[in-house]
Design a protein around this nucleic acid. Structure first.
Lengths: 193, 193
DNA sequence: CGTCTATTTGAATGTACTCAAAAGCGGTGG
DNA sequence: CCACCGCTTTTGAGTACATTCAAATAGACG
């Protein structure tokens, strides 16, 4: 159950067997089924989640009632509402399972405890925050400087694994275009080759 | 010279006179003239900057060579390339003075020193990071769900002070539209009233 | 005053959107 | 196992919004 998360952590910090023994019990496990909510907008994100299996999407609802995906998370990714989790204030994001999924999660107080006992985890979670920050920056930049077609090509490069698992209309929402437009973009691309 | 920054800090954490005496000497002062660069893309952002006077813009250059503004910073704001500063790796942003400006700045080692002596500054700078994060989130959301006109109206609400100080073509670049489009949007708006 | 840059305006173009309808696909129950 | 239902994807036609290119006007600065 903890192999994947330990491998994930060990990419940035090294843990002694003793530290591992302290680390793992702080995480609980949870499975959720396709279409179930992990987080609802307006509620506080009490946990930071690690995806052990499955796939989820994070989205917000604009003032016209339309959903916009901001992230997909598959195995070996972390998810949650970073802002809401850090501040423990209500957030604007929803997280829903795209497939049946299995998660490990840790609450805020446990994470603080972890920092105290094994300070190098501060480095690790700061790293996660930085990654989230960079991902956001890249979204802003690509949204401002690329056409729908370019964004789709980059999406497939970067999230090749996900492209096949996620319904096209969800990918469209992530790219900031309508499902119809994505369908046309795809046709263009196959005709070009 | 330090009144403004101390007032800024005191909005989130309280400092004793002794802590103030430790804090202020860690910052150096610098003035730069309109159109001068504070930071160039590709270089490491070695400082976190506080704007004492003036106005600056942060932008990146896309692969077609076009500039896109991502932030304006006036008096009482912090600026810099958050990602590059935290990681001490080369960043993608440029920062240029829009007006003659006066800055206070602190380097990375000094900030670490500050954290050690006065740990509550960790809270303060985490707060800055969160603000930067939220600002980015809002940009993504507004870029995905609002028309150019809505974005401009929101810009004026939120940055009322800056609207008059910043050339229109720079505002257009911030909103993600061409200067011509912004000009037309403005005409629409005045005609409506 | 002249030069350089910013802003406005016009006309033509393009990209993505909306609305509507058909085709494809997957899951469920009879 | 197949027929049906619901949801996703595709396709078409018309539209809206913003862009490009070009030119005129207005402002700023030395």
């Amino acid at each position: 159950m903890y192999e994947l998360i330990l491998k994930n952590v060990s990419r940035f910090i090294e843990l002694t067997p003793e530290e591992v023994r302290f680390f793992t019990p702080l995480f609980k496990s949870k499975t959720i089924r396709k279409k179930q909510y992990l987080l609802q907008e307006g509620s506080v994100c009490r946990y930071e989640y690690f995806v052990n299996r499955g796939c989820l999407r994070t989205f917000f609802v604009d003032n016209k009632g339309l959903e916009h995906n901001v992230q997909f998370s598959v195995e070996d990714w972390w998810t949650g509402d970073m802002y809401s989790f850090l501040t423990q204030k209500p957030g604007r994001y929803n997280i829903v399972a795209v497939e049946d999924s299995e998660l490990l999660y840790i609450d805020h107080p446990s994470l603080e405890e972890l920092y105290k006992k094994v300070p190098k985890f501060e480095k690790f979670f700061r790293h996660l925050l930085q990654n989230a920050f960079i991902a956001l920056q890249e979204r802003v930049l690509s949204g401002m400087s690329e056409t729908a077609e370019e964004r789709y090509i980059n999406f497939r490069k970067k999230y090749a694994a996900m492209d096949k698992r996620i319904p096209q209309n969800q990918v469209a929402s992530f790219l900031g275009i309508t499902p119809e437009s994505l369908s046309r973009v795809r046709r263009q691309l196959t005709q070009k080759k």
